[in-house]
Simulated scan of single mutants.
Amino acid sequence: MADPHIQSELDSLDKLTVLLYRTALTAAAGIMSIVAWEIEVGTTALVIAAILATTTVHIYDKRFRWLILGSALFAVTWLLSGLWTPLALGAALFSFSALAIKEYFCFQLKPLLLTPIALAGFWFCLVFNQAQISFAFSMTGAILLAVAAFSKWRMPMHYDIGDKTKYQI
């Protein structure tokens, strides 16, 4: 997570990763709005968005960065295995829940704290065949992720990077 008061010089890779992260977060919001109706396509799209977002997010602490990325890597691996795909979806949703909490710390928007509840609620309703309720959780998750994405696009790119010397390897 970056320090907005520090403006590091951004190279082309920095700019690319910021754009990819913001795009993946935006895509996740859109995908959440349809995943309850198109579960197979939505699951694949969310897993792709999760791996893109987690590989391009800028978080200083390597433990949190690897936890979030590890969840997305698990989602990709599980999806490719062809086994019970709701588990891959759950791992991708965990990644976006963690990213929403990260964005809460950036923007201090309290509604973002509800994102993990909305995404977990969607997943549990989906797994337990509660379609009508899963639609409500899906749309709530979509709105919350859209708020995070909109907030992200409004800020300058250097806010995402912060102090390059603070990143743990």
Rank of each mutant, 00 (worst) to 15 (best):
M1Y: 11
A142L: 11
R65A: 11
D14Y: 12
I48L: 08
S151K: 12
M1F: 07
F124W: 13
Y167L: 03
A146E: 09
L145Q: 08
G90S: 05
H5T: 14
A24C: 14
G82H: 07
F124P: 01
I68A: 05
L114G: 06
I117W: 13
L46N: 09
P111S: 08
L67D: 03
A88S: 12
T17D: 07
A131Y: 10
L99K: 12
D160R: 11
V76K: 02
T26I: 10
W153Y: 03
V35E: 07
S71E: 15
W123F: 15
A24Y: 08
A29F: 07
R154G: 00
A100C: 04
G70K: 02
L20W: 04
G42W: 07
L19P: 00
K62L: 10
L79R: 07
F74C: 00
T140N: 02
G70E: 03
E38H: 05
W153T: 07
F124K: 04
W66F: 10
A36I: 10
A88Q: 02
G121Q: 06
W78F: 14
E38F: 12
K102V: 09
P111N: 10
L67P: 01
L114D: 02
G141W: 13
I117K: 07
M139G: 01
M157E: 10
A92N: 06
P111F: 10
A131V: 11
T26L: 15
S81Y: 05
L126S: 15
L145D: 09
A136P: 01
G42T: 06
F74T: 00
V76A: 02
A88W: 04
L46S: 09
D11V: 11
L79M: 13
L112K: 03
L10T: 15
F107V: 05
H158G: 00
N129F: 14
W37E: 11
A28T: 13
L52V: 12
F122H: 07
Q130I: 14
Y167P: 04
T26D: 07
G141L: 12
K110D: 08
P111T: 10
T44S: 14
L52C: 08
Q168R: 10
Q7L: 02
I59N: 04
N129L: 15
P156W: 03
A91N: 03
A91D: 01
A50K: 04
S97Q: 08
I143A: 09
I51T: 14
F137R: 01
Y159G: 02
Q7A: 10
Q132K: 13
D3I: 06
K15D: 03
I34P: 06
W153F: 09
Y104H: 09
I169M: 06
L144N: 05
D61Y: 01
L73S: 03
A50P: 05
Y159P: 01
S138R: 06
C125L: 03
N129S: 15
R63W: 07
S33E: 12
H58Q: 02
G121N: 07
A118F: 09
Y159V: 03
Y21M: 01
T43L: 14
T55F: 03
Q168G: 15
S134C: 08
L69F: 06
D61F: 01
A148L: 04
A75Y: 00
L87G: 04
Q108C: 13
S138H: 05
A88R: 01
P156F: 02
A36K: 12
I59W: 03
A136K: 04
L79N: 09
A98M: 15
T23H: 14
L126R: 14
L52W: 01
F105M: 04
S151Y: 05
I34H: 12
F150I: 12
V35K: 07
